[in-house]
């Protein structure tokens, strides 16, 4: 695809960001996908893009987004475990945004990934899931690439304004630098607070590891059960073909590739 000749810097792009959690340590950081959304926004609109967070402005991790070279980050002040949907949709209705970018799901809290859909519903805008690239925009119609599993892409045409969520197929976020992060400004606005009903009934617990599914043994007789129980556990060294001709070796590989269905 040729780089689009159109100038997207005039585009009014808003990225919604949240506080993330590092996958191994759980410490607060800029959320991976949200940072990718900001990256996409920066590529489209440059520094003119707006970045909005609904939550606690004192959270240091927010500076991670400023460190990407954004001068200002709007914070809609919200207490922990509030439903930020209304605060955000109120803000966005007034913002004359043309493109709203978000990550696919939050790294903390429920992380249901519902926010972009609910916003789209509230604003009455279309939503593109898994945006990978905006190819061009003309006359209020955007041509975008949507990321599919395993690196595949699908081209979509969508009416502006729209909401797009990005996942890990979007361009990697640029490094967050200390200098701009320190200089960047957090502007805080009060917003309507709407408590989240979820935590009245549900509760968060440390994740329980899920065991890998074992081969289900449907043994009818005692002998079969015995056999299954004493069978050598799978794994522990695969098949090794030594002293065979290249053709035999190739045949074995070919068979495995066919069985796995990766040959097209």
């Amino acid at each position: 695809m040729q780089p689009s000749p159109m100038d997207t810097t005039a585009l009014n792009v808003v990225a919604l960001v949240s506080i993330g959690a590092h996958p191994t340590s759980g410490r607060p950081r800029r959320a991976e996908q949200d940072a990718r959304a900001v990256e996409l926004g920066l590529r489209l609109a440059g520094e003119a893009m707006q970045v909005v967070h609904a939550g606690d402005a004192r959270q240091e991790a927010l500076r991670g987004y400023l460190g990407m070279g954004i001068k200002q980050l709007h914070v809609l002040e919200q207490p922990a475990q509030a439903d930020v949907l209304h605060a955000l949709s109120d803000y966005l209705l007034d913002s004359d945004a043309q493109l709203i970018l978000t990550g696919s799901q939050a790294e903390t809290g429920e992380g249901s990934g519902m926010l972009p859909y609910l916003l789209a519903e509230q604003l009455g805008w279309p939503i593109v899931v898994g945006l990978a690239e905006v190819e061009r925009i003309d006359h209020g119609i955007a041509h975008v690439l949507q990321a599919l599993p395993r690196g595949q892409r699908r081209r979509l045409q969508v009416q502006m304004p729209f909401i797009a969520s990005v996942d890990n197929a979007a361009p990697l976020a640029r490094q967050s630098a200390f200098g701009p992060a320190r200089r960047g400004e957090l502007t805080v606005t009060a917003a309507n607070v709407c408590p989240d009903q979820l935590f009245k009934e549900g509760q968060l617990q440390p994740a329980r590891p899920r065991p890998k599914r074992l081969k289900v043994i449907k043994a009818k007789t005692g002998a079969e059960r015995m056999k299954a129980a004493t069978a050598k556990a799978s794994g522990g060294g695969g098949q090794v073909l030594k002293d065979c001709s290249p053709t035999e070796g190739a045949e074995a590989i070919f068979k495995l590739l066919m069985d796995e269905g990766v040959l097209r």
Binding site: G67, M68, R174, Q175, S176, F178, G179, P180
Partner: peptide, 8 residues
């Protein structure tokens, strides 16, 4: 380069 440009 690292602290200002984020270009490591």
């Amino acid at each position: 380069l690292t602290l200002e440009k984020g270009a490591t």
